[in-house]
């Protein structure tokens, strides 16, 4: 049994990475068989906090792009009709055909549409999946190539990579922010989602969006209130009214922010914050054990 926990949030900057890293670290300290995956492929940053981690494996993520064979093409326009993303430019009068690689989603519809075998495929790199060793456990990040908009494709490949390469019993997915495709792809089929929210009006607004999404995906979830003490109590009322599982509260601390900014995530942590993370980790371990 592999227990997959996603750490997500509607709003960015609520502390997904902090929560993911602390849970990972505490599980490591308990000698748990755990692996951390950075799914925030547009800006992966988990590895910044592990300066001694060693790269062990790098895999290139490619996207398939159509190549049009002009001698075979009759400029009939069927591929253009099939392309949902307007990625193909076709001008029959001047016998011109080309693909805009930034719009192509590699769906293969143009290849399917063509009756004249005028479409072949080539590979274009859109990212990398890199694994690092950190003592007994490893950390793997997906990284989208700058300029590509195919986040979800890199995320899907990272999931496939995990299924074939990871033997960790507990797998922590540090999710991208928001509630869009990349988040859906990250959290779908996980066993539990930890939603990190801050008690501000903006934090509550985006938590509501996230809860709506999670209900649609029918996932188990709970909330961690980060930066507790800021804002107001509205978020607590929402959590109570919706009967959402409360995993814990991390008090707001400028001291912690300073440590984070200096890249020092795990040392000199104020005791009340460490205790809060310990409690959250215990709850998650209990959930994992209940399933195994």
């Amino acid at each position: 049994m592999r227990y997959k926990i996603a750490i997500a949030s509607g709003k960015g900057g609520t502390g997904k990475t902090s929560v993911a890293l602390h849970i990972f670290n505490l599980l490591q300290n308990r000698k748990a068989n755990v692996e951390l995956f950075d799914f925030d492929v547009e800006e992966p940053n988990d590895l910044i906090f592990f300066p001694n981690a060693k790269k062990i494996k790098e895999t290139i993520v490619n996207q398939k792009i159509p190549v049009f064979i002009e001698q075979e093409c009759t400029f009939c326009g069927k591929c253009v009709e099939f392309c949902e993303f307007n990625a193909i430019s076709l001008i029959p009068s001047v016998k011109y055909i080309s693909v805009d690689t930034s719009l192509c989603h590699s769906c293969g519809a143009c290849t399917h549409a063509c009756n004249y075998d005028a479409v072949s495929e080539t590979k274009m790199q859109i990212g990398t999946i890199t694994s690092y060793s950190n003592g007994n456990n490893s950390i793997t990040e997906g990284r989208l190539k700058i300029g590509s908009a195919m986040q979800t494709m890199v995320i899907k490949e990272l999931k496939k990579y995990i299924d074939t390469n990871s033997t960790a019993k507990i797998q922590i997915f540090d999710s991208p922010p928001g509630t869009s495709c990349s988040v859906v792809e990250t959290i779908i089929n996980t066993h539990y989602v930890v939603l990190v929210a801050e008690p501000t009006p903006f934090g509550l607004h985006d938590l509501k969006l996230m809860v709506k999404l999670i209900k649609k995906l029918e996932l188990s979830y709970g909330v961690v209130i980060n930066k507790a003490g800021l804002g107001n109590n509205d978020i607590y009322e929402f959590i109570k009214a919706e009967q959402i599982e409360m995993l814990g509260e991390i008090p707001f601390s400028t001291e912690l922010s300073k440590l984070y900014s200096a890249g020092d995530m795990f040392n000199n942590i104020p005791i009340e914050i460490l205790n809060a993370y310990e409690n959250i980790t215990k709850v998650l371990i209990a959930k994992f054990q209940a399933l195994c």
Binding site: F85, N86, S89, P92, L103
Partner: peptide
């Protein structure tokens, strides 16, 4: 009203 590449499509029309 297309979600993307409206400019490219319009340019194709100009060429045609």
């Amino acid at each position: 009203d297309s979600s993307n590449a409206a400019g490219t499509k319009a340019a194709e029309v100009m060429v045609e």
